[in-house]
């Protein structure tokens, strides 16, 4: 399956669906495609929005490494979905997801202060290819083959 998206904010950033496989709930999220990041990540503050609790005793916690130094993360169960290009949302207001990741976990990082997530290589390795073009244009083109 082929997907062609235009990036937001002059970046390789797309609108993706974040899906909680336990409840089936879907959330829209801006996500940067970062080939330098091995694990899909979100700001920790978004965990509760996706139905998770960073303070739950069963949540896997740890210390990782980022460009900014050590970081504290919480691992939660989420899948990433790619939206239909022609009709991303159905008439009933629900997202139309054409591809859903097999990977079902992401790190929620305490020091990550933003309103977007990062799609890392754990998701990208499930794709056949990803290509960036027109990177000097306001809306870079991102082509994903799954």
């Amino acid at each position: 399956m082929n997907f062609t998206y235009h990036g937001l904010e002059h970046k390789p950033m797309i609108i993706a669906a974040v899906v909680d496989p336990n409840t089936g709930e879907q959330f829209g999220c801006k996500m940067i495609l970062d080939t330098g990041c091995h694990k899909t990540s979100f700001p920790a503050i978004l965990a509760s929005r996706f139905g998770h609790n960073n303070d739950h005793p069963d949540v896997v916690k740890g210390i990782g490494c980022t460009l900014g130094g050590d970081c504290h993360f919480y691992t939660h169960t989420v899948k990433i979905g790619l939206l239909d290009e022609s009709e991303p949302v159905a008439e009933d207001g629900k997202a139309i997801i054409r591809w859903l990741s097999k990977s079902d976990s992401a790190d929620f990082i305490a020091e990550f202060k933003s309103e977007y997530g990062i799609i890392g290589r754990d998701i990208m390795r499930e794709w056949k290819s990803v290509e960036f073009s027109d990177m000097d244009k306001p809306r870079p083109k991102i082509q994903i083959v799954t």
């Binding site: 904010e9 002059h10 609108i15 669906a17 709930e25 879907q26 959330f27 829209g28 999220c29 801006k30 940067i32 929005r49 980022t66 460009l67 900014g68 130094g69 970081c71 991303p88 949302v89 009933d92 207001g93 629900k94 997202a95 990082i109 020091e111 990550f112 202060k113 933003s114 309103e115 977007y116």
Partner: peptide, 27 residues
């Protein structure tokens, strides 16, 4: 806004000059 399973996106203007390094990681 999400009631009834509606697909909601939350967006915030990111700081181009600082994103992905200092600002992103709260430094």
């Amino acid at each position: 806004a999400k009631s009834g399973g509606r697909f909601v996106i939350v967006s915030q203007k990111s700081d181009d000059a600082l994103s992905c390094n200092m600002h992103t990681f709260g430094l």
